[in-house]
Amino acid sequence: MKESSIRPTIRRSIRVTRRAVQVGTFLAFVLIPLLNNYDMRALTGNMVAFNAAGVPLADPLAMLQAAVGSFSVTAVMITGAGLVLLAAALLGPAFCGWLCPFGLLSELVQCLRNKKSGVSGSAKSSGAVFFRPVLLKSGLVAAGLLLILTALPLPVLTQLSMPAWITRFWQHAILLREILWPALWLVPAVLLAEFVLGGRFWCRYLCPQSLLISLAGLAGLALPKRLQVRFTPKACNCPASDRACLAACSLNLNPRKPVAAQMAQCVNCGDCVEACKKRGRALGFKFSAKD
């Protein structure tokens, strides 16, 4: 079976690489304000919007809020959001799994929880898996946009962006020599709730920023090229009762049911691929839509 995967044979584990990327991204947003302090300003910004030597990248929801609040768009808004959405279309919501610093913390909390209470989580039916979270997030985003439109023309939903709080915290600490206190209680509070309730519920059900990204990811499934996890049932040696790949997924998705609804939420973290490696190679990455 020919495996057209985006990466050649992985010698190092995916998990290690991904952790390195997550930590590196976190550190990058600490480094940016540090460099600014030393008059190096080619890179500026945080995870709401930033600029890398002239290339803008932005949180699409933040741009949408600004557009709705001011009834206008700028070229930079379109470019910044557009590039992110394009990446999400091609790579899925990989931001959540590879770059988001809150995602990193949320996963670590999930690991702790698993260690404490044993493997948990059961895959729900495909419909509920996708629709419940998207409905909840859509409701939240819609409510926010309505508020902006009618009463409070400020980007209120950015107050709910965990990556924004984390990266803004370092901006304030380094550039402004101040503690951004809300970040210090809000982020841990949400993490604590995730610890108690499990299933990385913030990332799955509430994070407003992820809505547009996952919708773009969903749309991207129609593209000829799209990074996704490939499941080859013929290669699967595990009995139905052995749910190693299921247990590995921190988002409670079922890798053996690669329907669009699951794929739209899958952040391509590769934990299931890693788990499968020890048992066979039914799960892998691919970039082409075809098998």
Binding site: I32, P33, N36, R41, L43, T44, G45, N46, V48, A49, F50, N51, A58, D59, A62, M63, Q65, A66, G69, S70, I148, P153, L154, P155, T158, A164, R168, Q171, L175, L176
Partner: peptide, 13 residues
Amino acid sequence: KSRCISCGQCVGV
């Protein structure tokens, strides 16, 4: 206020 998204780029630059 309707446009500022608190990205902090103005501070950095």
